[in-house]
Amino acid sequence: MTITETLAPAQTRGLVEITEVHKSFGALHVLRGVSLTVEPGAVTAILGPSGSGKSTLLRTINHLEKVDSGYVAIDGSLVGYKKRGNSLHELREKDILKQRTEIGMVFQNFNLFGHLTALENVVEAPVVAQGKTKAQARRRGLELLERVGLKDKAHAYPRQLSGGQQQRVAIARALALDPKILLFDEPTSALDPELVNEVLDVIRELATSGTTLIIVTHEMGFARDVADTVVFMDQGQIVESGTPAELFANPHEARTKAFFSKIIEPAFNI
């Protein structure tokens, strides 16, 4: 893989630069030259139909998916690769894992360890990945569970929690490493409708915290309320982006207009 662009040194925490990223799975070209800059502390919502490449793009940011060409950088440092001359070479797995400690990710299906309590799920990564003592990690874990409204469930196992509670534990776990960036991949898609708001309320609070958030979501009203920038993707490309007011009220591209025309207006109260 070659690279000709020069990465500008980042002066702040949480700058994401995605440049001309392509990704294919066999004959399926999922990402087609995607470029996107997310400023530090900004909240970006990525919308689009199923199969548009949203989740794949999210997974390239923490190198869960390797890019075929282009690159992702955080605070001026390449993710998953190092530069030698004009070529990129993949980092060793331990170095990739170290990078991932700066990028928290919340998945659709919680991905909690079933044999660990809520608190143990939150404590695990700081102890293993950052060398925190169990006492330090436990104190921080209890603070985070309190932040997401679940301190009283610290000793419950995932099977004893509702889907919304499990997802809130997953958010606390992602926060435990004090990441520069938080990625959310359809965080409410696996939840029953009555549990959606309890998760969205936690993310709304995080949106005011100064951490960079990138959220793939189908919750249009939520995107309008919390995002600084809304990105619409289709067929592996960014079709257009702008503020929520611009994109929801006055999209310019035909594909964007067609997508939003299928959404019932009261769902995002415009």
Rank of each mutant, 00 (worst) to 15 (best):
L47R: 01
Q237G: 12
L182S: 01
E124W: 13
G210Y: 06
V16N: 09
V72P: 11
G48Y: 05
S162P: 06
I103A: 15
V230F: 10
G70C: 07
H63R: 11
F25H: 10
G141W: 06
I264G: 05
G53I: 05
A135H: 14
I214T: 01
V226M: 03
H155M: 13
K180P: 07
I203L: 09
G70F: 13
D178C: 08
A10D: 13
V43N: 14
E65H: 01
L183H: 00
T229N: 12
Q167A: 10
A10K: 13
T133R: 03
R100P: 07
S55N: 01
A73F: 10
S52F: 04
L78W: 07
G163D: 02
S261C: 06
L183W: 00
V21D: 05
T44L: 12
T101A: 12
F268A: 02
P126L: 03
H22W: 15
T243C: 13
I96R: 12
D225E: 15
V72I: 15
A73Q: 04
A118D: 05
H22T: 14
L177G: 08
E39Q: 13
I3Q: 05
A73R: 04
T19I: 15
K262C: 12
I270E: 10
V239W: 03
K82T: 15
A258G: 02
I181D: 01
R32L: 05
R204Y: 02
V202T: 13
T6V: 11
A227W: 11
G221M: 02
L150N: 10
P179N: 14
V196S: 06
E39P: 09
E5P: 14
V16K: 05
K23Q: 15
V21R: 11
D192Q: 13
V34C: 08
G242H: 14
V30P: 06
E120I: 03
K54V: 00
D178G: 03
A118E: 05
L112S: 01
